[in-house]
Amino acid sequence: MDYNDGSGIGALIAFWLLLAPFLFLLAIAAYVIGSWFLMKVFDKAGVQGRWRAWVPVYNSMVAAKLGDLSPWVMLGAILIAGFLGQIPVIGWILSLVGIAAWVLSGWRIGAKLGAPWPLLLLWLIPGVGTLIWLGILAFGSSRWNPNIAPSPWRNSFLKDTTVWQGIPVQPDQAGVPGASAGGYPAAPGYGAPAGYQPPAGYQPPAPPAGYNAPPAPPAGYTPPPAPP
């Protein structure tokens, strides 16, 4: 084809105009399938609110938390890959930052679902590799087990220290303010306020049938002093 000829350029433009709708529909289909698979993974992990898997960028941040990676690190990696990745010559290197963030969190998510790390090599298959990986995690028989070895970056800036309502707190977040031992963020304001008095006439509930009160302390027992 002679691109110096006006008809050749017109044919090329027509070809891309015909191909663009197909590529657009293919991208939409991949996003829907990927979000559906991610929703299933979130269900296994105990994430509350299935809508989280369908919001672009935010779903990657939630996945980062499940993978013991700071969601803000994931957001920064996505922004770097999306914007700085357009720089000529070095842009392709910067675009790898987003992939690296997903590899770290994906490795941890796979480990919590009992998937061996070599499954991440599926990502090398262009277009469908990530979907295959997500599908294996989403529909595999293994259950979510967050009690795995701590992440190698647990003492670095990569560690997840963010607590979000509706997203289970992972063991790697031990010691993070606002996290509770039950696996979810502690509810704000939980517990009776200082100086609270029950309303007049309130009677505490009766103990269940068969309940035995604890034995009385031995004679001469002195309770330990109150902590300062």
Score class of each variant (00 low, 15 high):
3 Y>T: 06
3 Y>N: 03
4 N>C: 02
4 N>A: 11
5 D>H: 13
6 G>K: 07
7 S>W: 05
10 G>P: 00
10 G>N: 08
13 I>C: 05
14 A>I: 04
14 A>H: 00
15 F>L: 14
21 P>W: 00
22 F>K: 03
23 L>T: 01
27 A>R: 10
28 I>K: 02
30 A>L: 11
31 Y>H: 05
32 V>W: 08
35 S>Y: 01
36 W>V: 13
38 L>D: 08
40 K>S: 08
44 K>D: 10
45 A>W: 03
45 A>E: 09
45 A>D: 08
50 R>S: 15
53 A>I: 09
54 W>D: 06
57 V>R: 09
60 S>L: 15
60 S>A: 14
61 M>E: 05
64 A>M: 12
65 K>T: 15
65 K>S: 15
73 V>S: 06
75 L>E: 04
80 I>H: 06
83 F>M: 14
84 L>R: 08
90 I>W: 01
91 G>F: 03
93 I>Y: 12
98 G>C: 02
101 A>M: 02
103 V>D: 03
104 L>Y: 13
106 G>H: 00
106 G>L: 00
106 G>E: 01
113 L>V: 04
115 A>F: 07
118 P>S: 02
118 P>Y: 12
121 L>W: 01
122 L>I: 03
123 W>C: 14
125 I>E: 00
125 I>R: 01
128 V>H: 07
131 L>V: 09
131 L>H: 05
132 I>D: 09
133 W>C: 07
133 W>G: 10
133 W>T: 09
138 A>K: 07
139 F>V: 02
142 S>K: 15
142 S>N: 15
147 N>Q: 15
151 S>T: 15
153 W>S: 07
157 F>G: 14
157 F>P: 04
160 D>R: 04
160 D>C: 10
161 T>Y: 05
162 T>R: 14
168 P>V: 07
171 P>K: 12
172 D>E: 10
174 A>N: 15
175 G>T: 12
175 G>D: 14
176 V>P: 13
178 G>F: 05
179 A>M: 13
179 A>E: 10
181 A>P: 09
189 G>V: 09
193 P>I: 00
196 Y>C: 00
199 P>L: 08
201 G>M: 08
201 G>Y: 11
202 Y>F: 12
204 P>K: 01
205 P>C: 08
207 P>Q: 14
208 P>Y: 06
209 A>V: 13
209 A>T: 14
209 A>K: 07
211 Y>E: 03
216 A>R: 13
220 G>C: 09
220 G>I: 10
222 T>S: 13
227 P>W: 00
